[in-house]
């Protein structure tokens, strides 16, 4: 295969590691018996958590973005697309992980608020709530903070 040279700026692969991971994760043929998912535990954690809570997390983030935006005088903000992209790329890995930290906190909050109504029926099923929490921490130990939070949540409830 010859590489064509034209005016358009074409890269042979994504520029950042995070984008390469995005590119290949969840792609390709699945051979059930042999996919050892634990090998990419961190990414799985990302996906798993995303399913649970992504929307609320995103909503809050955008609400924040809109508020911040509105506070600035008209015309002062000249968003340089290049700069924004640089920031996006630089932050994209930490964004994923950061978002996860956020997810855990949010989950705890939401659990707190749900628990007030839910705990009566969950009281004798401690395992079910433990199971939920564990699901979010596949392949990685929960941060101490998150663990403590969850712990205190359980004690409180």
């Amino acid at each position: 295969m010859t590489v064509m040279t034209t005016g358009v700026n074409r890269a042979p692969r994504p520029s950042s590691l995070a984008d390469v991971v995005d590119l290949i994760l969840d792609k390709g043929i699945v051979i059930d018996a042999y996919v050892r998912v634990s090998l990419v535990g961190i990414e799985l954690l990302t996906i798993d958590a995303r399913v649970v809570i992504a929307s609320v997390d995103t909503y809050l983030r955008f609400a924040e973005a809109v508020n911040r935006l509105d506070l600035q005088p008209e015309g002062q903000v000249t968003g340089l697309p290049g700069m924004i992209q640089g920031m996006t790329e630089g932050a994209s890995r930490s964004k994923t992980r950061g978002a996860l930290g956020g997810v855990k906190d949010k989950l705890t909050e939401i659990k707190d608020s749900m628990h007030s109504g839910q705990d009566e029926q969950d009281d004798d099923e401690d395992e079910s709530s433990g199971g939920r929490r564990r699901k979010l921490t596949i392949g990685r130990q929960p941060s101490r903070q998150a663990a403590e939070r969850s712990g205190s949540t359980d004690k409180d409830s």
Binding site: N9, P12, R13, P14, K27, G28, I29, I84
Partner: peptide
């Protein structure tokens, strides 16, 4: 225009077209 920052990548193996 410059409203969007593009990233154009390839040629790649058919990762999105392989799913069994």
């Amino acid at each position: 225009g410059d409203r969007y920052t593009p990233e154009y990548v390839g040629p790649l193996p058919p990762l999105d077209f392989a799913d069994a």
